[in-house]
């Protein structure tokens, strides 16, 4: 996480050789993305911000196959993996659709299927939901969430609520790593949020402003408010 222009996208591009570091070294699964880009790209998939500009082929299934074609996968296996990847993002039946007829969320899921077909170990997500409407965003997050524990996921986002389940959060600002925290701690650290132009989601923000500890859902927060009211009035907790 971090403000725009802070270096998040640059970091993603250094990780798979789209950019070359001026100094220092990058290693992905033991390979240097500069000298062995192909080895690194076989093992990593990048989901970009704007799915519109990442889809190559005029039909969904051909686009999902693109990465496999590049790897030289035989046709029979390609067919199996393309069908499987399209199913895994919930787009069965969309094989012959043209990308420009899809919604933003659907395009982003096609892009995700294209990555999953290659079976990468690492997924690099560069603000994949920022151009999407609420339902599209939910659907993409659900598919990404389903990959947890089976893949390493690096998720760049502006939306703190998308990171509530993360193991670690890195805050990047001004080209530097300024913090490494647990999501819960970040949410409660008003100064750190403010310095890095981060806006906490409504529920944790209300909870913090009311001095009520950490809450995730509106129901959690309402419960916490009511408990406080009853404590204050000395009434019994129903």
């Amino acid at each position: 996480m971090g403000p725009n222009g802070g270096g998040k996208s640059t970091l993603v591009r250094l990780l798979n050789g789209l950019l070359v570091p001026d100094s220092g070294e990058v290693a992905v699964a033991g390979h240097d993305p500069v000298t062995e880009p192909f080895e690194v790209r076989k093992r990593t998939g990048v989901l970009f911000q704007n799915p519109e500009n990442g889809l190559v082929a005029p039909f969904v299934e051909d686009d999902v196959a693109f990465g496999l074609e590049n790897l030289g996968v035989p046709r029979e296996e390609m067919r199996r993996r393309v069908a499987e990847a399209i199913r895994s993002v919930g787009l069965s039946g969309y094989e012959r659709r043209e990308p420009h007829t899809l919604s933003g969320g659907e395009k982003q899921r096609v892009a995700l299927a294209g990555l999953l077909a290659v079976e990468p170990e690492v997924l690099l997500l560069d603000e994949p939901t920022s151009m999407l409407d609420a339902p599209g965003r939910r659907e993409v997050l659900r598919r990404i969430g389903g990959l947890r524990r089976s893949k390493t996921v690096l998720h760049v986002t502006h939306h703190l609520e998308e990171l509530l389940e993360a193991d670690r959060v890195l805050v990047i600002n001004g080209g530097r790593l300024v913090a490494e925290v647990e999501p819960g701690r970040l949410m409660a650290d008003a100064a750190l949020l403010e310095e890095n132009r981060l806006v906490p989601p409504t529920v944790p923000r209300l909870a913090a402003d009311l001095g009520l500890g950490s809450c995730r859902t509106p129901e959690d927060l309402a419960g916490a408010v009511l408990r406080r009211v009853w404590e204050g009035s000395g009434a019994e907790i129903r």
């Binding site: 989601p201 409504t202 529920v203 923000r205 209300l206 509106p218 309402a222 408010v225 009511l226 009211v229």
Partner: peptide, 24 residues
């Protein structure tokens, strides 16, 4: 409803005196 209203509506079920706030 937006998040703020969902919280307030839930609280109102047990504390009807809350009123009907909308903005943060």
């Amino acid at each position: 409803a937006p998040t703020t209203v969902r919280v307030a509506a839930r609280v109102r079920e047990s504390a009807p005196g809350l009123g009907r706030p909308v903005s943060y």
